[in-house]
C-alpha cells in the first residue's frame, strides 16, 4: 500500500512513538543536567514517562468560561504538527532522496504550528493569565521568527537550494556549514531562537511560573496537560535535529556515524540546558528588542558574509 507506509512512518518510526520516547528522554537529560548544575541528584531516567502516565490518569478540569472544543483540541493539533515536522526531518536524514523542493522552509512553517496551537488553546481557556501568556507567546513567536529565518537562509544561500537533500549533500562535500564564519554566526543566532521557540529560560516569558503561574499552560490539567508536555518534549527533540541538519551535517545511522550523530545531538541539548540554567528571565519587550536588534543584525551579517562566500 502506497499510503500505508507514510502513515506507519508517521505513527511509529520516525514519527510519533519514536519522537515521543526520545523527546521524553531528552527532557530527562534536561532535568538531570539542571539538577547537577544545582547540586542535586536529579530524577531517574524513567521519570518523564512515569509523569506522563500519571497525568493521563488524572481528572481533567475545565473552566466554565473556556471554549471547550478549542481548548481541548489545540494541544492535539500541536502534537500532530510537531510529529509531522519530526517525521519529515528524520526521513530526509535517513534517505535524502525522499526530500522534496523546499522542505526546509516547510519544516520551519510546520514548527510554528505547535506554538500557534498553544496560543489559541490558551486564548480559549478564558483565564486572563493564560491570555496574557498567549499574547506574550505570539509576540515572542514573531520576534524570534525573523532572525531564525534569516539564519536558516544563510545556510540556504551558501548551498543555493531550499531542500534538505542539497543542504546535506553540500555539507558532506564541502564540510559542514558550522565551520565557516557565516555558518557559526548563523548557528549561534539559530540556537538562541530555538531557545525561545522552546520557551526555555531566558525566554520562558509566556509561561513565567513566578508571575503568570504557568501562563499559557495555566488551565490545562490531566490528560490535556500530558499532551501539552508531550508536545513540548517532541519539539525539544525536533529543534536540535533541525539545527544539526541545517548546520552540522545531519544525522546518520550507518556504522560509527551513529555515535557522532548522538554526540552532536547531546551537545546541542546540553548547550540549551546550560543557557537555560545560567540566565534570568527577560521581559517581553527586552526579548523583542533582543531579537529584532542584535540578533537581526548578526543574522544579516551572516547572510551577507554567506553571499560573499565566507
Amino acid at each position: 500500500m502506497d499510503i500505508l507506509r507514510p502513515i506507519l512512518y508517521y505513527a511509529i518510526f520516525p514519527g510519533f512513538i519514536f519522537s515521543a520516547v526520545v523527546g521524553l528522554l531528552t527532557t530527562w537529560v534536561d532535568r538531570k543536567v539542571t539538577a547537577r548544575v544545582q547540586w542535586r541528584v536529579g530524577p531517574p531516567w524513567y521519570q518523564p514517562f512515569a509523569d506522563t502516565v500519571k497525568l493521563i490518569g488524572k481528572e481533567v478540569v475545565i473552566p466554565a468560561n473556556a471554549r471547550r472544543t478549542g481548548f481541548l483540541m489545540m494541544p492535539v493539533i500541536g502534537l500532530a504538527a510537531a510529529t509531522l515536522a519530526s517525521t519529515i526531518l528524520w526521513i530526509v536524514n535517513l534517505d535524502p532522496s525522499k526530500s522534496f523542493v523546499g522542505d526546509s522552509l516547510v519544516v520551519i512553517y510546520i514548527m510554528t504550528i505547535p506554538a500557534v496551537s498553544m496560543i489559541i488553546g490558551a486564548s480559549a481557556s478564558g483565564n486572563p493569565l493564560g491570555i496574557l501568556g498567549a499574547s506574550r507567546e505570539m509576540k515572542l513567536l514573531f520576534s524570534y521568527e525573523l532572525p531564525l529565518i534569516i539564519s536558516v537562509l544563510t545556510a540556504i544561500v551558501k548551498v543555493g537550494s531550499f531542500s534538505f537533500k542539497n543542504i546535506l549533500a553540500y555539507q558532506s562535500e564541502h564540510g559542514v556549514i558550522i565551520w565557516s564564519i557565516s555558518g557559526i554566526i548563523a548557528f549561534i543566532v539559530a540556537i538562541l531562537c530555538a531557545q525561545a521557540k522552546l520557551t526555555f529560560v531566558p525566554f520562558d516569558i509566556p509561561e513565567a511560573e513566578t508571575e503568570l503561574a504557568g501562563g499559557s499552560h495555566i488551565e490545562y490539567s490531566g490528560v490535556a496537560l500530558a499532551v501539552v508536555r508531550l508536545n513540548m518534549a517532541i519539539m525539544f527533540f525536533v529543534l536540535p535535529i533541525f539545527l544539526i541538519t541545517i548546520f552540522w551535517g545531519g544525522i546518520s545511522f550507518d556504522g560509527w556515524r551513529i555515535l557522532t550523530s548522538i554526540v552532536k545531538y547531546v551537545v546541542i541539548v546540553v548547550i540549551m540546558v546550560l543557557i537555560k540554567n545560567t540566565n534570568p528571565r527577560v521581559r517581553i519587550d527586552q526579548a523583542v528588542r533582543f531579537f529584532w536588534g542584535p540578533m537581526f543584525i548578526l543574522a544579516l551579517a551572516a547572510i551577507i558574509l554567506a553571499k560573499l562566500g565566507l
Partner: peptide, 11 residues
C-alpha cells in the same frame, strides 16, 4: 493519535 491518548485519559 492525540484523540486516542485523550480516550486513554478520562477526558
Amino acid at each position: 493519535i492525540g484523540l486516542i491518548i485523550y480516550a486513554f485519559g478520562r477526558v
